[in-house]
Simulated scan of single mutants.
Amino acid sequence: MMTGELLKPNIKFKLDLPENERGAINGTVYAKLQNVNTNESELNKQVFALLALNRFIADNPFQSLAGGTSVSSIARSSVSKLLTEQLNNLASDLIKGVDINFGLNSSEDYSASGSKSQKTDLEIGLSKKLLNDQLNCYCG
């Protein structure tokens, strides 16, 4: 929500759900959002997490990582998504008539040595539409 003068806006955030979804899970999600909206520092943290990571952050983020996901894995995954989007934006103007898609995937790999290691794969896909868009050739 923006208020104030155009050159000096006062920006405030608010998390909300559509009215028809507020009763989901007995209203606990909506109640949690209302609780977050009352705490400005928590609200800012969640809004920026949504913008940067495309997900909410738990009250204690390290507690939610007990399932085996590490902070570095989350960071690598977020950077991978960002780089994938940027590579796809750059490639969209490279060759006219040919679609180039990139996928940068970071994961934890246990297969090589039995111990956890970080793995990053770059996937490249090319597609071309032929015969007035009747035939789509894909190579990936």
Rank of each mutant, 00 (worst) to 15 (best):
29 V>W: 05
123 E>S: 15
107 S>D: 10
71 V>S: 01
96 K>N: 06
120 T>G: 10
7 L>P: 08
78 S>A: 13
86 Q>L: 04
129 K>S: 12
117 S>E: 15
121 D>E: 14
56 F>I: 11
66 A>G: 15
33 L>I: 01
43 L>E: 06
108 E>N: 09
23 G>H: 11
59 D>Q: 10
10 N>C: 12
131 L>F: 08
84 T>Y: 00
17 L>R: 01
55 R>Q: 11
74 I>K: 00
124 I>S: 09
137 C>Y: 13
91 A>K: 02
43 L>K: 07
8 K>I: 13
99 D>C: 03
23 G>T: 13
81 K>M: 08
127 S>N: 10
107 S>G: 07
13 F>L: 12
18 P>A: 11
5 E>V: 04
16 D>S: 07
140 G>L: 10
48 F>Q: 05
116 K>T: 07
71 V>P: 01
135 L>T: 06
116 K>S: 09
68 G>A: 00
77 S>D: 15
124 I>P: 09
97 G>E: 04
52 A>V: 14
30 Y>W: 08
55 R>M: 10
55 R>N: 04
138 Y>F: 11
73 S>A: 09
2 M>I: 14
89 N>L: 15
27 G>S: 12
65 L>T: 03
73 S>T: 06
24 A>I: 14
140 G>D: 10
63 Q>M: 12
61 P>G: 04
85 E>L: 14
127 S>W: 05
20 N>C: 03
45 K>Y: 05
3 T>H: 05
12 K>G: 15
136 N>A: 01
123 E>P: 05
130 L>W: 13
27 G>Y: 11
5 E>S: 09
128 K>L: 09
108 E>F: 01
80 S>N: 14
132 N>Y: 06
73 S>C: 05
31 A>I: 13
26 N>Q: 11
125 G>T: 13
16 D>R: 10
111 S>N: 12
91 A>S: 12
137 C>T: 15
11 I>P: 07
18 P>C: 11
125 G>N: 13
68 G>E: 01
117 S>M: 08
73 S>L: 08
2 M>S: 14
114 G>F: 01
113 S>P: 01
67 G>A: 03
105 N>G: 03
97 G>S: 02
45 K>F: 03
45 K>N: 07
131 L>I: 11
32 K>A: 09
88 N>G: 06
19 E>C: 03
122 L>V: 06
90 L>Y: 12
104 L>M: 01
10 N>A: 08
82 L>N: 12
55 R>F: 04
120 T>F: 15
106 S>V: 02
18 P>H: 06
138 Y>V: 15
108 E>G: 06
18 P>S: 08
24 A>L: 15
98 V>Q: 10
41 S>D: 15
127 S>H: 01
133 D>I: 04
